[in-house]
Amino acid sequence: MRHPEYQYLDLMEQVLERGDERIDRTGVGTRSIFGAMVRFDLSDGTVPILTTKRVYWKTAVKEMLWFLTGGTNIRELLQDNVRIWTDWPLASYRKETGEDIPQEEFERRILEDDAFAKRWGELGPVYGKQWRRWLGPDGHEHDQIAELVRTLRENPTSRRMLFHGWNVAELGEMALPPCHMVYQYHVTSDGKLNCLLLQRSVDLFIGAAFNYTGAVALQLMLAQQANLTPGAFVWVGGDVHLYLNHLDQAREQLSRDPRPFPTMKIVRQAASIDDYRIEDFEVQGYSPHDAIKADIAV
């Protein structure tokens, strides 16, 4: 059988060769196609952590755990040594104050100064807020994750097991509107949990690998909570693009042959969906090609 990672590599090649070239919001420019789907089978214990470049899977899992806390301030991420969300608050700080502060200095102040973190580290009502505390017009808050876990346990044939962060009323206050947008689940009659992630906007070189990893970590957690086993992970992309300053890196990655996917498991039975820690995740058999450096577009 052809290595499942080729689904990703084929998609990358398609964007590289046939993508429509345009200037985007960030000013960097992209090659873009619309509408894609890939599918991975997790039932043998493997997970799609890409092997044609090193993916910092712990960072992706930590980010997912942070979403689950409902947090929206980068301070909690920085305390865990996760720096992937710093760019957006940093850009608004520089823009609003005119001070060309280095990233390390900005992060140090977020960590050390409560008032500074509160004023400058906040991302607005992004993922975690919507997933755990979606605010209704009547002031009532909805915990979509708790509701999902309950339905997975009590009514697994439901076709309504989904959650998402696209709260139309609050998009304007978010540092970045949700990219990985809708997570839908499906339970088969033999107890397998399938997940479909719909992503409206996909930075194929930097973002997608991270999003796959975070989503399957969540799928493993939900499966454990509902006493199910992981089945298929299906990923759907809307605007799938390569930034124009990632094209050489994409070509480099395409020249590499995939290696066997690693396995991921959760080594401890957690009491609830709120009880997971990074130490609970064990990845084995991951020997990827070297990392490939690229700048993120803010």
């Binding site: 985007d24 919001r25 919507q130 209704g136 509107p177 906007s201």
Partner: peptide, 13 residues
């Protein structure tokens, strides 16, 4: 070129 041309009906509340 926006990647945000979305209309959603799933209002959780």
């Amino acid at each position: 070129e926006s990647r945000r041309h979305i209309v959603s009906a799933w209002n959780v509340a």
